[in-house]
Every structure is written in C-alpha cells, then in structure tokens.
Design a protein around this nucleic acid. Structure first.
Length: 1067
RNA sequence: GGGCCCGUAGCAUAGCCCGGUGGUGCGCCCGGCUGAUAACCGGGAGGUCAUGUGUUCGAAUCACAUCGGGCCCA
C-alpha cells in the first residue's frame, strides 16, 4: 500500500536505496528478460580508455547513452548494450613507464617485455574496475558484468581476422612512408594521435649555391634546420615568377634567386642594403638548375648527392617561395620525392638522434643538432629569427613529433574514400551536419592509415614474414596460428606471439612475426563485431550487426566514427552503425576546456555528493543540446535540483490525504493498476486538463527522442512539472483534498493525480532513474512490475487530448496573473474575498474560456462573481484632460477658465458628444465656449476600489470594495490561517482536534464574526470548541496549549489553541 | 591556413531552418501565500540579439566579412 513520505527530497539516500534494490533484486537483468523477445536494438558502447577516473565529459557520455537506451527499452526493444573498455596502447605504456621510472624503450627491453606487458595488463584491469564502479554510480545500465575488453584473446582475434580480410582484399600494404614519429616513444603514431599547440622554433633563410655559377644562390626558408642534412631538392611553384637579384650587403654583391614578390621583405630581413632585379623566370623554367648543399663541407652524405630544382603545387607565395625538400622528413616532401624519383634520405634513428651518416652531429638529438648545423652553415645562413607556430606533439608524452620515413604497415584508406562517403550518407546523423558536413569533410581528406606501432602493449600485428623469400601470411585466428606453428598460444600478446614461428609455404624458410603491434585505434575499430564474439561465434553477429545506434563526442569524428567506418568498410563493405548521435564537450562556465592547470575541473563526484546523480543527469541532459558544448554551471545545477525538489513535493503532497481516506487506485484482476482514467463521476475540467497536458507532453517526447533532442524532451518534462502540475493543477485541487469524508470530486482528484504521477514516473524514468524508481515503488499496486524500468513507455492517449481546453486554460492562467496583479495594485490580499472580477474582452475565445472555467476563475480570484463584458466595463468612467496646447490658441486669455470648466464637467457626457461627432458647449456666466474633440483628451478612470490589469486578449477589473460580509470572511480567513500556523507549531497531525479561544480587541470585528463565521472557523481548523469574544484580556480561556498575540490588519487579537483529547474528538 | 559548431540581460538558455514588436529560468528588487512550508506563488527592473556591411518595406533570423570561444584538421 502507498506509504506516507515525510522527508524532503534527499537524493543521496534515495539513490543509495535504489542502487541496493537494483542489485539485490537483479532488476537490470530481469528488465532485460522482459524484453528478450522484443525486436533487437544493438548498441555499441564506445570504449573509454582505461587510464584512470572518469571526468564530467565521460559521465555525460554515459548518461546520454543510458537515457537513450532506457527509453528505447521501454518502447519495447530488446536492447543489447555491453559496456566496453579500450585497454591497450601507448597511454598505458607511458603510465607504467612513469611508475617504473623508465626513460626510453631500452629500459623496457632491459626490464623484459613479458613483465612489462603484465604491468600494463594489471594497470588496465585495475582501472576498468574503478571506472565500472563509477559508471554504475551514475545509474548507468549497461552489461558491466561482462564488458568487452580489447585485451581479451577473443577481441584480439577479431582484430586479427579483420586484418586478414584487409590482406585478402588487397587493402593491406607494407610501405616506406613518412609517418608522424614520436622520438621519445620511438614509434610511429597516427594522425589521430597528434596534438597541436604553439611552439617556438628557429625560422631561417638559407642560401644554396647554384651549381656551375659563381656567387649565385637559391634562397630557401625552413623552421627545421635539422632536416637540411636530408635535403635533396628545392621545390618551386610552376606558376610563380622568380627573380634573379643582384643584392648588396656591406659592400659585397651576390646573385640570389627567390620569388619576385618576396624579394623586398626577404632582403630587408637579411639586412641587404640594395638590390637590382636582373631577370625573372617562371618556376617551371627553373628546373634546369642544380645546386650544392651548403653543408657539403661538413657532411659527406650531402657531398655525394646531386641536388636539383623541382616544381610542386604545394609551394605558396610565402617566405621565399622556394621550399627545401627532404623526402625523408616530410609528408609532402615524400610524395614529391616518389614522383620525382628523388633519393629518400633519413639519417635519424628511432629515438630522434642522428646516425653515423652525418658525422658532424652523429648521436645528437635532432633539435639539439640545430645549433651545430646553423654554425656549419656559416655564411650560407642569410637570416635567423624565432617564430611561434602550431606544431604537432605526441598525444601521450607531449614530445614534439618529427617526420620520419620508415617501413610501416598501411590500410589503403585513401582508396576507399568514395565508398566510405556513400556509406556515411546512409547513416542517420544527429545532428545532420555532423555527418553531412563535418564527417564527410574529414573522409575526403583521408590518407592511408598507418596501423603499425613499434611498441609493446597492444594487439600484435598478425603478420608473419619469411626470412628467406619475403612472403608474408596474415593469421585470422589463434587456432589458425596454432595449427600452422604446432604450438599452443594461450596469450596472443607480445612477447609470447613473437616466439611463434611457422614454416613458410612458398619456400623452405621460416616465417617470423613482424615485431609491430596495432595502432590502438584499430582495436576499437573492430568493436562492433568483436563485442558479439565474432569471428569465433557468428550467431549474434548475423542477427544483430550492424549497430542500430552509437553516440560519442565530437572528437570521435576523426577517432572512433572514422576507425569503425574504415574497418567496417574493409571487412564487410559497409558502415558498422546505422545511427550516430554526436555530442559536445564539457567545458567550464566560461566556455574553457576543463584542465588541471586551469584549476577549473569539476568532477562528477563533486556534483553527485552535492545534489545527487539524478540532478546531475537531468542537468547535463537539459542544459544544452547534446551536440553543443556543455558549459558547466553550478547555478544551472541548483535550478534542476530545485525542480526535482518540487517534483518530490508534488509527489508526496497528496499521500497523507490518500492514506487517510484509504484511497485505492483501480486495478485489474491481476492486481495491476488499471490505466483507464475514464470520465468518472465528479471529474472536473482541471482534471481533464492535466490529463490532456500529460498526453500532449508525451506526444512531443517521441519525436524529440528520435532526433536525439534530449534537451527538448527533458525541458518539456521540467516545464510540465513546474508550470502545469505544481504551479497550477496542485493549486487548483488543494481544496478538494481537504474535503471531509467521501466526496466523488476528491476521489477523482486522487485518481487523476495518481494517474499523472504514474505516467510522469514513466516519462522521467530514462533520465532520472532513481527518484522515479522510488516514487513508483511507493505508488505501485501489488500486481504491478517491481520496477518503473520494467514498464512500457507512455506515449500519450489521443482521446484524452483536448486542445481547446488547453487553450482555454492558458487564458484562465493569464486571467489569474492579471487578477493577482490588480489585487496587488489595490493592496488587497488574496485571502480577502472580493465582490466581483470583470473581464472585458472582444474575443470569443476569452469569453468562452472565462465562462466555461468560471469556477476556477472564482476560486483563483477569491471572487464572489467573475463575469465577462463585451466592449467596455460599465463601471469605468472617463477623466477629461484639457489639451492646453490646443486651448491656448483657441481661447487665448480665457483658456485657463475653459480648463476649469472642462475639469468640472462630466467627462462621460463630453466624450459621448465627441464620439457622436458633436461639439461640446460649456457655459460660464452666460459666456459659451464650444469645444472640439482635439481640445480634450480622455483617460479611463476607475471608481475607488476598482483596479485593473491586462490579460491576454482583454482586461480584468477587480472590485476590492469591502462589504461587512466580505470583511467578516476576510477576518475569519486571517484567524483560520493563524490558528493553522499555531497547530503546526504545536506539531499536531492533520486529523487531530483542538480547542480554540480568540479574544478580539475590536467589538465591531468581533460582532462581524460571531455566529456563522465562528462555525466556519471551528470546522476549518478541526476545533471541537471555539470561544470568540471581544476584549483585550490576556487570558483566552484555553489552558494547556499555545497562546499568542497577533496583529490582524491593525486589530489586536489573542489566540489560544490546545489539543483536544482524542475521545472527545468525535463530532 | 582549412572544415564544422557556438556567441542573445550579471549567469544559463529559447527563438534562427521558414524574416514581421525578442521569450524563459537563475540571481537581484518589491509583494503575496502559509494544511507541499529549511517549500511555494505574483510583480518589477535589467538586452547595442559579438561587431560591421549587404539583401529587404522590414533582419536576432538570410548573405558576406571581422572578432571571440570550442572541436577537428593542415
């Protein structure tokens, strides 16, 4: 049975109880069972990376997922939602390296790869446990008991199998390419792993001597002096005009080549005093030029090379218009080198140090070599400054990256662009531009995907190469490898798989595994089938794949949205997801990124401990559109908290009355609540109205959820709770709750409120799963499901929607605000009744609304009568105001006299004449003045005691004039209120009886109240006896209770209240 | 340097697609209510709609440019 709730909204307690309930009763598992035979809905959790605690953005991400999935489940879908974790990769390696105090890969090798990856494994597992706990504390329902883990053997197989598919499709390629290289981690890193921020670098202008010409140079510009040892060419743009300049500096002359337009700024920067342009030429004609390295003197490697000028479209009219080309150290350079057949030189090792090929700087870290090389340039260094520019860094260790030409494994993503673009177009994107604009743009720029890393903690690349003939083989499963090698492979990680060799199929040789591991982005790329146990099991895959829905942050455009698309396209020729909701980032209140260094980080725990999980959830969902960035704001959190407090108060408000009356909601034979609210006896318009409203709101929620507009859905619900339910419906039905005994209208109010609360719990359950669960658990009937989350979604009842009634109620609410305003200007408290409220309007709709809902209007206005008048309020008069500007010229010195005559005249009569087109004549001492309408202005003048205010479509007039009868009621209400307050101070229960004594220091007021009002007061305050008399005595004749002096509207009163014995309480 | 998103009172936001007097909440000030009460309700003040230019009879809304913030890329 429904229990009373005395406590205010205490999120912490509620949520803890609900968590316990879910756990002990296995509610999640059993809720899933209810939907086991519903149509499948396959969701794939974007796996968070297991490096540590979750932050607000991670929490938001999971809250969005959970809300969507709970809603989906309630609409009758079998939701498959396994939590997942990304557990491999450099971030974890770096953390473990820090723990062990390692500085480089050499330390790891010395420590042993085996022990090292075991540390990584347990680090990842420990964090997984912490994070799962945190997610569940957010009320998130995913399969946390059995999350997919990228480090599990089955998952590794999914990646292997996918690579095998790529190989078979000819999409896997081993190649010599320039890649982003982290010198600290000594590995290639993906484009997606590069972070950019400003960095200071040298900006130098260098003269390259033209071969075969004395004192003639090409002028190039670079920010990376250390790439000069690998220089093999200078690139010019075929269309740019270049100038051959004779330049003079300190009395010496030399011939320089650079873009014509840039001659002046460059020479100024290099402090040349004078110059003459000797000739100009197109870039295309410069290709006959060859040149010598300015470092030829110190670097033998450079001495042996031939250098030439080539053309390239990427050259721009910046700096000198001539670009130094080092194909071993630049992406564009590399492509150009391939096209022009230039030698590809890369005299830099994995840790970013020069090799012995470059004697002068051998063993030096590239950045440290800059200074030496600048010195070696000598006179060839024309100018040097420092610039600040955006530069790439390793995402984990923040080391500036370099570009290195190395042997790597690639997926030929660039060949799949067209197919990927077609697939993206078939996916439903929320919002639309996330796919049509943002993601598509990214795909158009797709380059081949370098999937190999020279590291340890990751999925080993399952490629075995023959040492003798160079043939390679890709293994798709562990079993396949075991069969070919004849050894068992219990753990498919390094270093164990490194030791497995297989006989070559093409020759007598032996195949060894390439030492590389996968780019960690490849791990999560295969999540949509790996989570289904594919390829080991195929049943779920065939039934469920591709995913119906995924949602992640906008940073995953280049990340998981893309990696999954690539892998899905390679393996299955299609996108692995059907619908994507892209969400924003959690920022601080000023719109800045939350970061430790700024000290503006707000953790989910902080918010939860302050206001609870449901408030956090509802806040992040309602405060901004999912795809906009979330500016975290404590004021916003408090507002949501207040809204939930009101929701809680609305919920517990009727409970004492329901319990007192033994109210039982209708149920069917099985003891389940009967949701047919019907049109029972005693139903009122406000009941119909609130039922209409909740169905209207429910109707709006469907499309909002479908479009990922969770902010609209949650805001609509918040508005409903605050505006419709709390501020209006509850206020309207309060008097009905207080009716004694059996009253049909009271029962209908119970029924209606119960129905609304049950439906509201369902509608809010996906967003605030704890508080709705608690409410539902108290409200449910014995045959109802145990959890609100086991119920079906409420999508509104069409037959209960009454648009006209909702419209009319809007008008009445406007009336209510207007009458309150009018009263306020007349300083008449709401407690004091007024004789009448008059609504003047010309609109049928307003008249219909006020008429059909007049009972509500009377109640709200505390008015004996509310009536509608068309046209003009009969009791409003007119005030005439002379227009002196017009009277002056017309009447000259007599104008002041006329003014007085006008003020003395009956304004209504004058206006009547003017309105009929007549002139008004005023007489004074026989003198007659004739007035035209332009000489008098008219203003509405209300008689004393009448106040007005505008409402939508009309004006309301409130007559606050007191009559003895109205005054009597006013005083009676004042006394009742004070007795009620004293009751509360005495801590009495609603049903307790009291004895009351009132002494009034005003014989007239006491006289007004004696008789029938005395009875009213007695009944209202549940008094068995009341003594009301005039006088100023201190003693009021009630012993053993509370006695208090009051000032009621200037009248002194003494009121005494005491509890009556229970047995005498019977009336 | 490029792509996408965002910029509306002290704060947070709606409206923008489809042009027609800018709404709402928090905070502030004033008042009310007192059987939801460490709650609740009404009213008021507060806005160069980031800036500029254009299109238009009319621009927060459309176009272009600039500035600022975010995400992504080069």
């Amino acid at each position: 049975m429904i229990g009373e709730v005395t406590s205010s909204y205490k999120a912490g307690e509620i949520e803890e109880q609900v968590r316990q309930f879910w756990k002990t009763e296995e509610i999640y598992r059993r809720t899933k069972e209810i939907h086991a035979r519903d149509p499948d809905f396959f969701f794939v959790d974007g796996p968070p990376y297991t490096t540590g605690h979750i932050h607000l953005g991670t929490a938001w991400n999971k809250i969005l997922k959970d809300s969507v999935l709970r809603h989906t489940r309630m609409t009758g879908r079998n939701v498959i939602a396994r939590a997942g974790y990304d557990m491999h990769g450099l971030p974890i390696e770096v953390k473990v390296e820090q723990e062990l105090g390692f500085k480089s890969k050499k330390d790891i090798e010395q420590f042993g790869i085996g022990p090292f990856i075991e540390r990584c494994r347990s680090f990842a597992a420990a964090n997984l446990a912490v994070m799962s706990r945190q997610f569940q504390d957010l009320g998130v329902w995913l399969d946390f008991d059995d999350p997919y883990q990228t480090m599990s053997p089955g998952y590794v197989e999914a990646a292997w199998w996918t690579l095998q598919q790529a190989d078979r499709a000819g999409m896997l390629e081993k190649g010599h390419r320039v890649v982003n290289w982290c010198p600290r981690c000594a590995t290639a890193i993906a484009d997606a792993e590069v972070e950019y921020w400003d960095e200071s670098d040298p900006s130098i202008y260098v003269k390259f001597p033209v071969k075969g010409r004395e004192n003639e140079f090409l002028v190039i510009w670079t920010t990376t002096p250390w790439t000069l040892p690998a220089n093999v060419a200078v690139a010019v743009h075929p269309g740019i005009r270049y100038a051959r300049v004779e330049a003079e500096k300190d009395g010496r002359k030399e011939i320089l080549w650079m873009a014509e337009e840039l001659v002046a700024p460059v020479l100024k920067k290099a402090r040349y005093q004078d110059y003459t342009i000797l000739e100009t030429a197109d870039g295309a004609t410069l290709t006959r030029l060859e040149y010598l390295s300015p470092l030829a003197g110190t670097i033998e490697l450079q001495r042996d090379l031939s250098h030439r000028v080539v053309t390239a479209d990427f050259v721009t009219l910046e700096n000198t218009g001539m670009v130094h080309v080092a194909p071993g150290h630049g992406w564009d350079d590399f492509l150009l080198g391939c096209r022009e057949n230039l030698p590809i030189i890369c005299p830099v090792d994995a840790s970013g140090r020069f090799t012995g090929e470059v004697e002068s700087v051998s063993g030096l870290f590239v950045k440290d070599a800059d200074a030496v090389l600048l010195g070696d340039l000598g006179d060839h260094l024309m100018a040097k400054e420092i610039i600040v520019h955006r530069f790439g860094h390793c995402w984990r260790c923040k080391t500036p990256i370099i570009f290195r030409a190395t042997e790597q494994w690639f997926l030929k993503a660039s060949e799949m662009k067209e197919q990927m673009l077609r697939e993206v177009a078939d996916v439903t994107w929320c919002p639309d531009w996330a796919g049509s604009a943002r993601f598509s743009d990214w795909i158009r720029e797709a380059r081949d995907w370098c999937i190999s890393r020279q590291r340890y903690w990751g999925i080993p690349i399952p490629v075995w190469e023959c040492r003798s003939c160079g043939a390679h083989r890709v293994f798709g499963t562990i079993a396949e490898l075991e069969q070919a090698s004849g050894v068992s492979v219990p753990d498919p990680h390094r270093p164990y798989v490194d030791q497995v060799s297989v006989p070559c199929g093409s020759c007598d040789g032996t195949m060894e595994r390439v030492r590389d591991i996968f780019d960690v982005w490849f791990d999560s790329a295969v999540a949509s089938w790996a989570t289904l146990g594919f390829p080991a099991k195929t049943g779920d895959f065939e039934r469920l794949w591709p995913a119906d829905f995924i949602t992640e942050g906008q940073d995953q455009t280049r990340g998981w949205f893309y990696s999954q698309l690539g892998a899905g396209t390679i393996a299955f020729g299609r996108a692995p997801y059907k619908k994507v909701l892209m969400h924003g980032f959690a920022l601080d209140a000023e719109g800045r990124k939350m970061s430790k260094s700024l000290g503006n980080v707000v953790t989910p725990e902080e918010v939860i401990s302050s206001v609870g999980v449901d408030v956090l959830r509802l806040y992040v969902l309602s405060s901004s559109a999912p795809w906009d960035d979330l500016k975290f704001n404590w004021d916003g959190v408090k507002t949501v908290n207040r809204a939930l407090t009101i929701f809680w108060n609305v919920y517990r408000f009727p409970l004492p009355y329901m319990i007192l009356d033994g109210y039982t909601p209708r149920s069917d034979a099985s003891g389940r609540w009967d949701d047919r609210t019907g049109q029972g006896e005693g139903i009122t318009l406000e009941d119909r109205w609130i039922l209409s409203r909740i169905s209207t709101v429910a109707r709006e929620l469907g499309p909002a959820m479908e479009e990922g507009q969770l902010h609209r859905a949650t805001r609509a619900l918040l508005t409903f709770i605050l505006e419709d339910l709390s501020r209006w419906y509850i206020q309207l039905i309060r008097p009905r709750m207080w009716l004694e005994g059996d009253a049909a209208t009271k029962t209908v109010a119970y029924d209606t409120l119960y129905t609304v609360m049950r439906r509201l719990c369902v509608l809010l359950a996906p967003f605030t799963p704890h508080v709705t669960e608690t409410m539902y658990r108290n409200l449910r009937l014995s045959g109802d499901p145990e959890s609100v989350h086991m119920l079906s979604w409420f999508s509104g009842v069409d037959t209960e929607i009454d648009g006209r009634l909702e419209q009319e109620m809007e008008t009445v609410r406007s009336f209510d605000e207007a009458q309150a305003y009018a009263r306020q200007s007349g300083k008449r408290k709401l407690r004091w009744p007024v004789r009448e409220c008059v609504v003047v309007t010309d609109e049928d709709e307003v008249e219909a609304a006020i008429t059909s809902l007049s009972a509500i209007c009377r109640e709200r206005a505390n008015a004996r009568e509310v009536r509608v008048v068309r046209g003009r309020y009969d009791r409003a008069g007119w005030r005439a105001e002379p227009v002196m500007k017009a009277l002056g010229p017309a009447f000259g010195k007599k104008a002041p006299k006329v003014k007085e005559l006008i003020l003395a005249e009956d304004a209504s009569r004058m206006k009547g004449c003017f309105d009929c087109g007549e002139t008004v004549t005023l007489e004074d001492d026989g003198e007659i003045f004739s007035l035209s309408s332009s000489q008098v202005s008219f203003f509405e003048e209300l008689p004393p005691g009448i106040f007005s205010a505008p409402l939508k479509g009309g004006t309301v007039y409130v007559d606050i004039t007191l009559t003895p009868e109205l005054e009597a009621e006013g005083y009676a209400r004042e006394i009742i209120r004070r007795i009620q307050e004293m009751r509360r101070r005495l801590d009495l229960k609603v049903e307790d009886y009291v004895a009351v004594g009132v002494t009034i220091d005003d014989a007239r007021v006491a006289g007004l109240l004696s008789g029938s009002w005395e009875d009213v007061i007695r009944d209202e305050v549940r008094a068995i006896a009341i003594q009301l008399r005039a006088g100023s005595q201190e003693q009021v004749g009630v012993c053993a209770g509370l006695q208090q002096d009051w000032d009621v509207e200037g009248v002194a009163m003494v009121i005494g209240v005491s509890k009556a014995a229970d047995e005498t309480g019977e009336k």
